[in-house]
Amino acid sequence: MKKTDTLMGRLGLGIASLCLAGAMTAGFAVAAPGIPHDFDSKGEKIFNRYNETPLPAMTGTDGKRTLNTFYELRQYPGSPPRIPHKIPTSFSGEIFECISCHGRGGYVAELDAYAPVTPHPENEACFQCHVPRLTEKLFVENDWQSIEPPVIGRPQLGGSPPPIPHSLQLREDCIACHTGNGAVAEIRVEHGSRGNCRQCHVPMVATKPVKEFTRPSK
């Protein structure tokens, strides 16, 4: 199961994937003067990604990533995943080196897998949050316990669009994680081609209590 994994191999692939998918580098051309463009949980990202990602890149699936492998890399639901593959010791952590694969996804021959796409490519210091694991040995054992990850696919009605179970912070770009070959199998959607995700899916964060409407008392 040993996989050789060199940066060069992945870089080559990353360039190939440039052709596959449009870029996330397209600026926020629409912001009007004096209006910040990060409002509405950076909603602009979904529209840009939708416009720039070709349909084939949204529809493929390799099924290699699963929720199990997804949570294995995280300490709790929502924590930054560690880097599961080798990176050269000289790796500087510059954005281009990560983003060449994780900006747009695409097949990585060295790993025989599709690279997952980051939902927040604008944060360029990847190493600030994502680190590799060089040893499995712990310094001291830790009594850490996490909570169950949110149960997926819990629509309010049979067949209705499930709510978004996680917070949108740093996870604003639905299309990045929920479509394409690199997507986690269980949370991949079949209809990425519809684009305006929050037309049907609204946040109902699993770790927040459910609110019931009552009329205000006078």
């Binding site: 051309a29 629409v30 912001a31 529209f47």
Partner: peptide, 12 residues
Amino acid sequence: TTRTSQAADKSI
């Protein structure tokens, strides 16, 4: 500026 502006090619 709204969600529509975000999706638009140009917001005026």
